[in-house]
């Protein structure tokens, strides 16, 4: 098998494409760096000069407001120049190939590409075609990975729980189509969480997912029992009525996170969601806005984590 394409020959982060295959030390370095950036956002002058003179291109082949915005804020707080490109609506529709689009942008002296694409693996292809001084950050590819989301999730867990060892974590919902779930699973197992569970109906749990090191549950009562962290997944609208699920209502009845369901988890369990939430589909408003919810802090931490990733990549030459 080829060398892990996201590490350079010194074992440092060259690109952030996936959590899988990254050593715990690299993840912890990102989390530690992110913690040191937390204060930047609280200052009056919310900027550090680490990426001054560098150009970050946000390359979004799939629409996204939230993730693109947080990457943009993170890059700007590092003093980078940021260019947002929504490729879904420009050259791709004119028949230009992905490789040509990227080659053209690289010729404009980009230092970093933040890429979101609907096809799993697209950032790998892009990284392979760039010269080594240009870095790629995967901002979500198909069903494959969303590494910065997983990093901000484990940052959040560390913030509230301190240690990873000894935790029970449940990931609930549409695991089959979720790049967030895949990255979360790798981040949690790499950082030493002893029990990672996935909970959902059989139609939304991928084949042989237990090979990723998780326990599979099909009902909430046993899946959430005694867990310290509940990570909810978004259920996409197009999955709600069809061969995978009969309706959003029936899904909520069985898998929606309500206060009653939350009660079987550990007393101090935290509730997370990558957003945007479908209230009343995967999560009840009472829980989303309740005392155990850390959904808004996740968003705040996301900026520090993305700053850390970009700063580390730029520092690795």
């Amino acid at each position: 098998m080829q060398r892990n394409p996201q590490l350079n020959e010194r074992g440092e982060l060259q690109h952030l494409l996936s959590i899988e295959g990254l050593p715990a030390a690299v993840l912890l370095q990102i989390l530690d760096t992110a913690r040191s950036f937390m204060s930047v956002s609280e200052r009056e002058i919310k900027k550090v000069p680490l990426l001054r003179g560098k150009s970050v291109f946000n390359l979004f082949f799939e629409p996204s407001t939230r993730t693109r915005t947080t990457f943009e804020i993170a890059a700007k707080r590092l003093s980078a120049d940021v260019l947002n490109l929504n490729i879904a609506t420009s050259s791709q529709t004119k028949g230009e190939s992905l490789i040509d689009t990227v080659a053209n942008l690289a010729a404009m002296h980009a230092d970093m590409f933040v890429v979101r694409h609907a096809s799993s693996g697209a950032p790998y292809l892009i990284a392979r075609h760039l010269s080594p001084e240009i870095h790629v950050v995967n901002a979500g590819d198909g069903r494959h990975a969303h590494p910065t989301q997983a990093l901000l999730d484990v940052f959040t867990i560390r913030h509230y729980k301190g240690e990873f060892t000894g935790l029970k974590v449940a990931i609930v919902g549409d695991v089959l189509h979720s790049r967030v779930a895949r990255s979360e699973i790798h981040a949690l197992t790499t950082l030493g969480v002893p029990e990672v569970r996935v909970v959902g109906p059989r139609t939304l749990i991928p084949t042989q997912v237990e090979k990723l090191g998780v326990k599979v549950f099909h009902d909430m009562a046993s899946g959430l029992r005694d867990v310290d962290v509940i990570m909810m997944l978004r259920l996409q609208n197009e999955r709600m009525n069809g061969a995978l699920l009969p309706s959003a209502q029936e899904y909520f009845k069985a898998y929606g996170l309500t206060e009653e369901r939350l009660a079987v988890a550990a007393k101090d369990a935290i509730v997370m969601h990558p957003g945007p939430m479908n209230r009343g589909v995967e999560i009840d408003s009472a829980v989303a806005d309740g005392t155990q919810s850390v959904i808004l802090p996740q968003v705040t931490f996301g900026i520090a984590v993305r700053m850390a990733v970009m700063a580390i990549l730029a520092g690795n030459g």
Binding site: S120, G121, D141, P206, T207, Q208, K211, L212
Partner: peptide, 8 residues
């Protein structure tokens, strides 16, 4: 296993 891991 591989399709699950790679999200294919």
């Amino acid at each position: 296993e591989v399709a699950t891991r790679l999200g294919l």
